[in-house]
Design a protein around this nucleic acid. Structure first.
Ligand SMILES: [Zn+2]
Ligand SMILES: [Zn+2]
Ligand SMILES: [Zn+2]
Ligand SMILES: [Zn+2]
Lengths: 345, 345
DNA sequence: GTAGGTCAGAGTGACCCAA
DNA sequence: TTGGGTCACTCTGACCTAC
């Protein structure tokens, strides 16, 4: 595994939640995402969200670390047990392409310069503005958008629901849809009117030059639940004739046309705003099921001294109701597929 | 205790190590100072040392928290068991004075504006330069200087020793010397040539308007060991006729005239540089006694799984040799004095 | 009344294993 | 091969006790 963690730059332990990450960032993201319904448990960055995350200071600012995780495309729906996610394959192929093609013929599409190369430290590019945390040039993680999409599809008819106008402008490479569509969140979304322009041609097949799977039998179960979500719809920000690949997770270029109640101008909303949007629940009173689920990641050591009866209500129970486990298992079950790639590492 | 922690702004739990601090900052300083001979165990600030410490983010940057502790005058020699330090009394009297006199007649001595009032948040004043962490206008903690002084007196004839030209320019109020002179550090100082100008009139009595002890029988034991150190020599940065008191720990105005091998110009050295100066030992190989002493603050839980034999040499022993305890007890023993003040809280 | 010890709690990440 | 569980480990701060 000669990859670096896309979050902190440490040598990566593998491909976790949609990005090459170290064990620490993997655990951090897993913990935080499960707890992240309680969004405010992570205090804001005290440095305007401009912290550069590296191996040494990655624990110093949880907000920036989490944002970096999101920026590089980490998501709970990023991959699955026992198989590679679909766009991971394409990602690796792009990496291979990158090793062959030295990107000399560039400069006509500066949107593609957002992502740094793999061997350099995956720090955020020099952008010290207010939206420095987000990708420039309206790029955003495809998984991030997939969350928005899922929430839109899942809650389109609820009360107090957002109205997502899907009109993402796909730029270049088509996607490889249909693989491991993510499980949907059971909780309702409490968004207001937020419109996101999104193009319709997300489900094209990738060009043959980018396809090199050993096995191509994608699972399509739970497709009815996924409701044609473009969860793994990978859209490369790369011109197919000008190979300028991104070695961190691929991003889906899109344009926000309307973003009512969050932004008053055409600026790209902040990461927190978008993350709030992406969350299945914003309210501070999560459902009992969610609360139980969160507690599975909390510390289980108990007090043993005489203070026990004082804070009994704060004591943490690590037991999770069985139906939660069953539901989670059912939601994440996919057919194991052999999508192993021939990789240099 | 209607005081706020001078480090983070939380309601203070008491007067700890020379400043009103909360329990957290007290513990942090106690831990860190004992471990601080291993200076590099605290990673540098990733924000140019400009972090503003408050209750919420005080754990985010240990370097800035520690520097804030030093800036507000915390020191191991700041106070003792069972009694108030001497300048604490004066400090409280100044606080009383402050409540009476609204500081309207100011503006002729802007050096005194460095310290904020007690009711406002004790954040560092608006100074975003490189030396933002230090007090402006050449103010520095009297305890901090006392450490320098002690080290100078204690190691003046050792080899590889600093040459401290004491020439601190006292500005306004005289000090109250003789009380609870701190124990000296047993380790040798490895400084180079560093000259600090310092005035000679440190041991004057405070003006009668600032003296209001219930009991005035100061202990003078270990004075021979203290070697006439101005450890508790409080010099107020306040003009006696213009009462503009400092409710955080008093500071001793001084001027660095020569600071060879650390600074090349007349700039005020950084906090880290000064802290390095103030440390009894800079080398990374502390004496066995020091190492033992440091380990008293380290975590004592041991591994219980099969990895035990792998890192046996890293296992921590919490036992401290008896002579260390005895020496520490002897060094810190002072005559308990009733210096209780009539305080509003 | 404070310094220092104690220890429950929060968080981290290396390691392991089922899928 | 990865997601999630485990747990040794560190750091924190409220609480307690010695002084
Ligand atoms: Zn990492
Ligand atoms: Zn940050
Ligand atoms: Zn504090
Ligand atoms: Zn800092």
């Amino acid at each position: 595994m000669n990859q670096l963690c896309k979050v902190c730059g440490e040598p990566a332990a593998g491909f976790h939640f949609g990005a090459f990450t170290c064990e620490g960032c993997k655990s951090f993201f897993g913990r935080t995402y499960n707890n992240f319904f309680l969004f405010h448990s992570i205090s804001e960055c005290k440095n305007n969200g401009e912290c550069v995350i590296n191996k040494k200071n990655r624990t110093a600012c949880k907000a920036c670390r989490l944002r970096k995780c999101l920026v590089v495309g980490m998501s709970k729906s990023g991959s699955r047990y026992g198989r590679r996610s679909n766009w991971f394959k394409i990602h690796c192929l792009l990496t291979e392409q990158q090793n062959k093609v030295n990107n000399n013929s560039s400069s006509n599409n500066n949107n593609n310069n957002v992502i740094q190369n793999g061997n350099s430290n995956p720090v955020t590019t020099n952008n010290s503005g207010n939206n420095a945390s987000l990708l420039q040039n309206d790029f955003i993680s495809s998984h991030f958008l997939a969350n928005l999409y899922k929430h839109y599809n899942n809650n389109n008819n609820n009360n107090g629901v957002l109205k997502v106008q899907e009109a993402i402008k796909r730029v270049s490479s088509p996607s490889d849809s249909g693989a491991s569509s993510a499980d949907l969140d059971e909780t309702s979304v409490k968004f207001n009117n937020n419109n996101i322009t999104k193009s319709k041609n997300l489900n094209q097949q990738p060009p043959q030059s980018l396809q090199k799977p050993r096995s191509n039998s994608f699972s399509s179960e739970k497709q009815e639940k996924a409701n044609s979500s473009p969860s793994d719809g990978y859209v490369s920000p790369i011109n197919t004739n000008i190979i300028k690949p991104a070695t961190i997770s691929p991003f889906l270029p899109f344009t926000l046309s309307h973003h009512h109640n969050l932004t008053t101008s055409s600026r790209v909303p902040s990461t927190q705003e978008l993350f709030m949007l992406s969350l299945p629940q914003i309210s501070l009173t999560p459902s009992p099921q969610q609360q139980q689920h969160h507690k599975r990641h909390q510390y289980k050591r108990k007090r043993t001294n005489s203070d026990n009866n004082i804070d009994n209500e704060k004591s943490i129970r690590s037991t999770t109701p069985e139906h939660i486990h069953e539901a989670a298992a059912a939601a994440t079950k996919t057919v194991p597929l052999d999508l192993t790639l021939v990789r240099s590492g």
